[in-house]
Simulated assay, not measured.
Amino acid sequence: MNLLKLLTISVFGLLLVACGNDDTNTLQSNSDAPQNAQSTLDHGVTNDSVGFNVTGKGSVEEATNVPKEEREAVIEVFNENLAAFNEEDIDRYMATIAKKPEGFKYDDEKMAVQTAFEKYDTKREASNHTIVKYSENEAQLFANIDISMSEPKSGATIDRSGRQVTVFVKEDGKWRISSVYFIGDTE
């Protein structure tokens, strides 16, 4: 397989690792939703439970019922997840992941991320952090994501941008990532 094609697939794999290993890329929900998102039915989430619509690169509406301290706690876990990933610290990364996630298996996530750390140098950056849906035990954070990935062995590189909703749940009073939905920007 062509290395650049493999890297492209790997970028999506890294971003979707939290969504499981299903290759389905069609959406079976409302017509306002992005057409290249993962099917929410394949990830244990009902069609209306991911709380955002993306119709372009415009603004995203923030949920109005988010207490300030909860907003800060969710964003702190999100930022820690990115920092731990960028620093290739598997223990810190897994500390941000729910023990009983909805969108993937905890042990599979750990193995996939560890393998990615071994094979690739990847940096992820996020902007436009916005909590788009909130309840006492679940929060959904939208962010624009930029990814730079390289394979040191071959020198191949790829850059990718997209939009992501990260679903958080409360476990033992702490916010943890339960599933991830990434929509890659078209070039």
Rank of each mutant, 00 (worst) to 15 (best):
S39K: 11
V77K: 00
S161C: 12
N2I: 04
K99T: 12
S39F: 07
T115Y: 05
T46M: 00
T8F: 08
F117T: 03
A98K: 01
I147D: 05
G13L: 03
E109L: 03
P101G: 04
Y181E: 14
E151P: 00
V165L: 10
E118P: 02
I183L: 14
I131F: 03
V169W: 08
N21I: 06
S31C: 10
Y106I: 05
S29M: 08
L141W: 01
D42H: 00
E125A: 15
I145L: 13
R176H: 14
E87A: 15
D185K: 15
S150I: 04
E76S: 15
A83F: 06
A112F: 06
I177D: 01
K174W: 08
N30H: 11
F52C: 10
T24K: 06
T166M: 10
K57H: 11
I90T: 02
G103A: 05
Y106D: 11
K170L: 09
E118L: 13
R71M: 09
K170C: 08
N65V: 08
G162T: 05
V45Q: 01
G58C: 05
A139E: 02
F182I: 13
K153V: 14
V132M: 04
S161L: 08
S148R: 07
D32A: 11
W175L: 05
I158A: 13
T130L: 09
K57M: 06
E69C: 03
S59R: 11
K99I: 04
H43R: 15
D91W: 00
E88N: 12
D91T: 12
F104N: 02
S148W: 02
A83C: 05
S59D: 14
N53M: 07
Q140M: 07
M149R: 07
T55F: 04
V132Y: 02
G58I: 00
S178L: 07
E118I: 12
A18T: 07
D32K: 06
D172H: 14
A84V: 05
R71E: 13
K153E: 15
I9V: 07
T24S: 08
G44C: 05
N128Y: 03
G44Y: 00
G20C: 02
T122N: 06
E151G: 00
L82D: 05
A84I: 06
T186C: 03
F52Q: 09
E138A: 12
T64S: 15
G103P: 01
M94A: 06
E102G: 02
T40W: 09
T186V: 10
T24F: 07
R71H: 14
D89A: 09
M111E: 15
V50Y: 01
S31F: 10
